[in-house]
Amino acid sequence: MSEVRPKRILDATPPGDLKTRVMRWEFLLLALLLGVIVLGVNLHHNFLAPNHLFNGISVFLVRGLIALSMAYCLLLGEIDLSVGAIVVLAATLLGVVFNATGSALLGLLTALAVGLLCGALNGLILVKFRELPAMIVTLGTMILFRGLSERILGPANIGGMREVTWFANLYHGRLGPVPYFVIFFFVLAGIFWFVMHKTTFGRHMFAIGANRTAAEYAGINVGKTRLIVFSISGLICGISAVFFSSWVGSVRSDVGLGYEIEAIAMCVLGGMSTAGGKGTLPGVLIAVFIIGLLRYALSLVNVNPETVRIILGALLITVVTMQNVRRFVRKKTAPAN
């Protein structure tokens, strides 16, 4: 066919007009975050006092850390229910090793290694038995890991880590008014953002979540990606366990209860689709602060934990339904065909 068809030129400038940007979920979340801050300031005059504020932030970032890696699991269309159990197992073994050797560094390394291994175990099971849903596998390992730490600890607790100054400073130390931990969190969040949105690994995660078969046919190593993501999830739990130990200074077997639920709630509020393939890390980051600061504000005025739960639950349901309404409106106005 020698005749040349008039070539149709494709527009390759990324869509980025003001309206679509403002309509993005992250901006609505930012407005919500602002609302929470305004509420907080009105509830208590000390809400923005750096000392109080950073204390409050540090407390929820122990869980906020896990939302970062949970976002990756959800992006793949998977879920990791074992995160809370990995935190407690890692913290338990940190305490055991510390008490046995007297070395906080050995304890810290143990916690990281335990986290990584637990995550890798989840990943390996999922890769070996491809058709098993992550929800079931990690439900199983959640019970297993928690059972292990209950067996090791019994009703007792292990403590003393805070006697080691540098270890206590991991959580409590500050650069000016800003805790090292908060700085660490933002650096980590930056890395998570970069990997998710700017690298081939991130693109592969999006592809697997959106259409696993198509990703496989495009030559993406789906098994390897899943293994890595679940290992990261475990490692982050190990890190969370380290900061928890540095914060509280002791471990009981009921540590980390409900972490998985909170991390998932933060991700979903942040716009991660539980079906996989959709979401942004900035969204999750903002959602971490919405939930965290709201908790902090309510704790300042001594609202009891039951009421906090009711408020958080109601907020989550409201926002998530809003998200659906918004999608519906968009569908109505978007071209069909």
Binding site: A12, R203, A207, A210, N211, T213, A214, A215, A218, I220
Partner: peptide, 16 residues
């Protein structure tokens, strides 16, 4: 089902 990610733009499908 196996070839394309229908939720994605043209460009990203081509380069995947």
């Amino acid at each position: 089902h196996k070839g394309l990610i229908l939720d994605w733009g043209l460009g990203r499908n081509i380069t995947l």
